[in-house]
Design a protein around this nucleic acid. Structure first.
Length: 375
RNA sequence: GUGGAUUUGGUGUAGUUGGUUAACACGUCGGAUUGUGGUUCCGAAGAUCAAGGGUUCGAAUCCCUUACUCCACC
């Protein structure tokens, strides 16, 4: 039986570990390395699927198991014909497992070997997520790529707890694989182990032995210093199979995306572009731009001179600042569209650079303009 | 004209048995944001308390004069 998700390696940058590839899914191919916009509740906040396709040029989006389970309920989404039909998005979708909510809802949950008991953030009602339950939900949602149920440890976590948690996440991955029945969805395993290399190695080896069609690195980019992020990223990525997609979860900022690609990562996702947009900050080739600042009051230029997006084609900083200051919805939409396009375009440039074996030079130029330092 | 009330950062307000750097909200200015708990979080600037005079060790607070605004009456 053919795998739902397969990876095709096109080219490896001769001067770095970066790889240019294609992930084949039931809803089409995605060109990698790629940035995936997050649409937690079956919508990338403020963006229509048409805008995501035509303006942002997104190839795949994320949705969230935990949120959609609570509302509207996975049974309802299934009844609608799955997420693709429900939200009118015909390209690939990836669902996160709810494992991150185990981390972000700390205080409202209890972790045991069986699974995680949650209190809903909406009404306090009690729920139990087990690997089996999460598979049931993700299968009902119908995404192309589904993530195993894991635990993302906070930073910092001590060795003993991280070790215990990592082994449990591995056991949960086994139960997910056992419970996973659909043939048109690819189940990815998630490597944990916090900031301890020996644990990362064990996690990677044990998961690889289970033969998932793709692997993710979880549990980094959780508030640690950049050196530690890079250290674990550069250590863990080479442990992952070369013939399968490599997904770094929860990243991120432009520099992290470039570093991920350099390390050999294929896929990243992050809420940052849309969250920044809602808070009035734009990403530009010259760094972050807090559009509500007074200095842009009479700035008739575009958000980013180099950007080709709909927002930059049509609207000035002064106008967007006005929209943000007056809390107008269009401000959020225009900046969201721009920020998302900024990152998808960044990854287009990264892919091109890999094809030409010069991602390292691209990083240097990008960092210099943006104001980052190479570490 | 008479009587009463009011006047505190840009705006709206809190602040009396007189007691160190006058509080709050909004606004302004700036920062944050990394597998989204959907207008969030953090910080800063900004008031000689209408003006002048008086009482007092000490006044936004008590007294006097003037001005301003509002209400009522003639």
């Amino acid at each position: 039986m053919a795998e739902a998700i397969t990876y095709e390696l096109l080219h490896v940058d001769k001067n770095s570990g970066a790889r240019r590839g294609v992930v084949h899914t039931p809803h089409g191919d995605i060109q990698t390395p790629i940035f995936m916009p997050v649409g937690t509740q079956a919508t990338v906040k403020s963006m229509s699927p048409e805008e995501l396709k035509e303006d942002v040029k997104a190839q795949i989006i994320l949705a969230n198991t935990y949120h959609l389970y609570l509302r509207p309920g996975h049974d309802l989404v299934k009844e609608a014909g799955g997420l693709h039909n429900f939200m009118n998005w015909d390209r690939p979708i990836l669902t996160d497992s709810g494992g991150f909510q185990v981390f972000s809802l700390s205080g409202l949950r209890k972790i045991t070997e069986e699974g995680v008991k949650f209190s809903s953030h909406l009404d306090g009602s009690k729920h139990l997520f087990t690997p089996e339950k999460v598979m049931e939900i993700e299968e009902a949602l119908g995404a192309d790529i589904i993530m195993a149920f894991d635990e993302c440890c906070p930073y910092p976590s001590d060795y003993k707890y991280t070790e215990k948690s990592m082994y449990r996440t591995t056991r949960w991955a086994g139960r997910c694989k056992e419970a996973h029945k659909t043939t048109n969805q690819g189940l990815f395993g998630i490597i944990q182990g916090g900031f301890y290399k020996d644990l990362r190695k064990i996690s990677a080896e044990d998961l690889i032995a289970m033969d998932f069609p793709g692997y993710a690195i979880g549990g980094i980019s959780v508030g640690e210093p950049k050196e530690e992020f890079l250290d674990i990223l550069r250590y863990t990525t080479p442990l992952m199979p070369e013939n399968k997609p490599r997904y770094l979860m929860g990243v991120g900022t432009p520099d992290y995306l470039i570093e991920a690609a350099l390390a050999g990562i294929d896929m990243c996702d992050c809420v940052l572009p849309t969250r920044l947009a809602r808070h009035g900050t734009a990403l530009t080739s010259k760094g972050k731009l807090v559009i509500r600042n007074a200095t842009y009051e009479r700035d008739w230029g575009k958000l980013d001179d180099e950007c080709d997006c709909y927002t930059c084609k049509n609207y000035s900083r002064a106008y967007i600042r006005h929209l943000v200051k007056t809390n107008e919805i269009l401000g959020i939409r225009l900046i969201s569209l721009h920020n998302l396009r900024f990152l998808t375009r960044l990854m287009e440039q990264v892919r091109e650079a890999i094809e030409q074996d010069n991602l390292l030079e691209f990083r240097e130029e990008f960092y210099q303009k943006y104001g980052y330092e190479i570490m």
